[in-house]
Amino acid sequence: MTSREPAPAVDGLAEAVGPRIERHFEALLEARGYRADAAQRTAIARLGQWLEAFLAGRKGWLRRPPAGLYLWGGVGRGKSFVMDAFFAAAPLAAKRRVHFHAFLQELQGRMAAFAGQPDPLALAARALAEETRLLCFDEFHVHDIGDAILLGRLLKVLVEEGVGLACTSNYHPDGLCPNPLYRERFKPAIGLIEKRFEVFNLDAGEDYRQRQGELEAWGSYCWPQSGFPEGWVEARLGVGDTAQRDLELAVNQHPLRVRVAGDDSAWLEFDELCRRPHSSADFLWLCRRFQRLAITGVPCLGEEAIDVQQRFVNLVDIAYDAGNRLLLASEASPDELCRGKPHMDFSRTRSRLQQLRPLQPDQWN
């Protein structure tokens, strides 16, 4: 199918797209009491300029605008904040902001609707393109062969269909798929990003998550676990006498063992979640079903097998993106968690764990 030219989507807009987005960024900074560094300001300006050119489309013999903008850098560089401002100010209705794991599950569901037809992935991607002119993709990363195949082909179809893509990632495009076992399958997608996207590195800025006093705690990190009194997890979760204990839930047609479940809270063991073959779809179900999660028995992750580490990384990503309240308990301190040989994505996980409020037994009351 030939690509369709982007049509103007902001008829009657009094303010140009780029300045509108920069103005909203400044207003968001002021409202939250933040300050931006030069790299963030350059990134928001690039996003605004790209979107303005993309919505205008190709004119005459002029070169077509980039299909998207790929913003990458280490953890804590402000990528999500920049994306917040850009997405909120983008002046079109057919826009979506998606997170990696939830979007892949949605894509698989869309493909199932076209089962039995030729190329369900292309059909699902084209259906998505009919609904979406701008797709903002947070935390873009590829560490699974299934993800590599799906994302690679999806990007190609979306670009062909004229969907604008804004992506944030911890990785340069060439580092997206480091596993040599299936890197060859993803190389065409890397080439597509490098050829058709504007790639911008945000690493010139400050790590904002290292500022003391500015972290927004989304839960607690409790250690050493053995020092806490009996019943402390249930007390922390606020579950009552009606809570169910030692139950087995059916999740995606296989069992998930839960120590305690209340109306919106659940307590599970690390062994159950990460040493058993649970998928990201299971974690998505868990985080949608329970707003508050307690996970006990978390080991030093660098000493675990790579599949165990990957499940923990995925679980933290999904809980963080979903806005869950998380309680983690371990014998190890936060700094000890990553000793040994941690997973390649653990820098992002470590950053998110640093936003958990530390709690030790002598602080318990």
Rank of each mutant, 00 (worst) to 15 (best):
R357Y: 13
L55Q: 02
A27L: 11
R275V: 07
L135Y: 00
V163N: 00
D119E: 09
M344L: 15
K187A: 13
D144G: 05
G48R: 05
E272I: 09
E206D: 11
Q309P: 02
A93E: 14
L55G: 02
A36V: 09
G33P: 10
G323A: 12
A332G: 02
P342L: 14
N324L: 12
A112L: 15
S333E: 10
P65W: 07
L135N: 03
S330W: 15
K341M: 14
A16M: 08
E139V: 12
L328E: 01
G164C: 14
G162T: 11
A16D: 15
F100S: 07
A112I: 06
K156E: 12
R35N: 10
I21S: 03
D264K: 11
R245M: 09
Q360T: 14
V239N: 01
L237G: 05
G109L: 15
W285I: 08
L150Y: 03
G219Y: 02
Q49H: 14
F114P: 05
L69E: 10
Q253W: 08
N252P: 06
V159P: 05
Q244E: 15
Y171G: 06
F346C: 02
H343P: 01
G146A: 08
T296H: 04
G60K: 05
E15A: 13
W232E: 04
A266H: 04
R350L: 14
H101T: 14
G68F: 10
A43G: 03
S3N: 13
R257S: 13
H172N: 08
A27H: 02
D307S: 05
Q309E: 03
A204R: 00
R133G: 01
K341N: 12
P229M: 13
A148D: 09
E304G: 05
F54V: 08
F54L: 10
E52K: 05
H99F: 12
R275C: 14
F290S: 04
F283Q: 00
P91I: 08
D307L: 12
D147N: 02
S220K: 12
A322N: 07
H172Y: 11
L134R: 03
S351K: 02
A332F: 11
Q108M: 15
L247P: 00
G227N: 12
G323C: 11
N314I: 07
D271E: 13
R4D: 11
F228A: 04
W223G: 06
Q309A: 10
L51I: 07
L107E: 01
Y70P: 04
G33H: 04
Y34T: 06
L353G: 03
A127M: 06
Q244M: 08
W267T: 10
Q360G: 09
F197A: 01
S280G: 14
A125I: 11
E216Y: 13
K187G: 06
E139M: 05
S330Q: 03
D144L: 03
A9I: 07
A89I: 09
F103W: 11
R20G: 08
V10W: 15
E161G: 13
M83G: 11
P8H: 07
D271R: 02
R275Q: 13
F25N: 04
E303V: 11
A235H: 09
R63P: 06
R41L: 06
Q40L: 15
P299I: 10
G297A: 11
A305H: 04
V316S: 11
A94V: 04
E5L: 00
A90I: 09
V17P: 05
T42L: 09
Q253G: 06
D207Q: 02
S280R: 01
Y34Q: 15
M83E: 02
N179A: 07
G175V: 10
Q108S: 12
L328T: 00
